[in-house]
């Protein structure tokens, strides 16, 4: 499979996982709630394609895409969301509390930055050459512990790439009502070299993330990547207060799947789609057939 097709496969696996999840939520097989990363798939794939085996990934409440791009098993994730023993964390953690190998996610925004900083400190001491990648959002910037940690990340020169996915909305609150001043300057104020990109195109995110990850790895110091992106779905199951017109505009302009599909021949695209469809449907069916859960 060529590079572009491979990237499309990664994006589509996340997209189909989450669209199937949302469609099946109505049937009552998933307890509680969930947060999808519709529209932000290119960040997960663009950044995590560069992972080395021992690297650590820390994510947040919107973590399915990161988990799948990390290499997490979609069947185990479906089972986790169904609350089954065969899930990633035995059905205890659910949508936002995942841990598998070196992947961790948690549901309180600012605390994930502290977790990631502590892990980067552990890696720095261990000297194995591994780094930590931490995904945060524009909403995360509202919590004070973030600034305590940015300070220590810089003071102690921790090997961490902070990826801020700026989807410009926190649940229903637009960034214009929540974030004052400059996001880039927040990192700069602590002496953390930061790169900004406004894109939903995996081919733009990929090389930039690769450069930054190489810098963190070789120079053993932190970097930040701010990707302005678009959340195309609701915050959780159905709580979007944006207008249909606004959403339509975002889907037209900012869908990473559409952007990447345009680079493939029709045959290749269809082959990838059939492959992903079979994989995700198979994972869903196997998770559903497993013991436990809501019914």
């Amino acid at each position: 499979m060529d590079h572009n097709a491979q990237l499309y496969r990664g994006l589509l696996a996340i997209r189909r996982f989450e669209t199937l999840l949302m469609a099946q939520f109505k049937t009552g097989i998933f307890p509680g709630t969930t947060h999808t990363s519709l529209g932000q798939e290119a960040n997960a794939v663009g950044v995590l394609t560069h992972l080395a085996e021992d690297d650590v990934v820390v994510s947040n409440h919107r973590c399915h895409g990161h988990f799948l791009a990390y290499g997490g098993n979609p069947q185990a994730l479906f089972a986790e969301l169904m609350g089954k023993p065969s899930g990633v964390c035995g059905g205890v953690g659910g949508s936002q509390h995942l841990h598998w190998r070196n992947f961790y996610s948690s549901g309180v925004q600012g605390g994930t930055v502290a977790m990631a900083a502590g892990m980067a400190l552990a890696e720095k001491r261990a000297g194995r050459g591994a780094i930590v990648i931490d995904f945060m959002g524009d909403g995360t910037l509202g919590e004070g512990i973030v600034y305590e940690c940015l300070n220590m990340i810089s003071l102690w020169q921790l090997p961490i790439l902070l990826v801020l996915e700026n989807n410009q909305i926190a649940q229903t609150t637009p960034a214009s009502l929540a974030v004052a001043g400059s996001i880039q300057q927040r990192f700069a104020a602590f002496g953390i070299q930061t790169v900004e990109l406004d894109s939903s195109d995996v081919l733009e995110i990929l090389p930039l993330a690769g450069d930054l990850i190489r810098q963190v790895r070789s120079q053993r110091e932190p970097r930040a990547l701010i990707v302005t992106t678009a959340r195309l779905g609701s915050h959780s199951k159905g709580d979007d207060t944006r207008s249909p017109r606004e959403l339509e505009r975002l889907w037209q302009a900012r869908d990473p799947l559409t952007i990447q599909a345009g680079r493939l021949s029709e045959d290749t695209r269809k082959a990838v789609e059939a492959d992903v469809e079979a994989a995700i449907q198979g994972a869903f069916a196997a998770a559903l057939a497993a013991e436990g859960g809501m019914r």
Partner: peptide, 16 residues
């Protein structure tokens, strides 16, 4: 930075 160092200690402990 009491919150920060406690959270950081948590991350350190998770990694051994």
């Amino acid at each position: 930075s009491e919150a920060g160092i406690t959270g950081i200690a948590g991350g350190m402990a998770l990694r051994g």
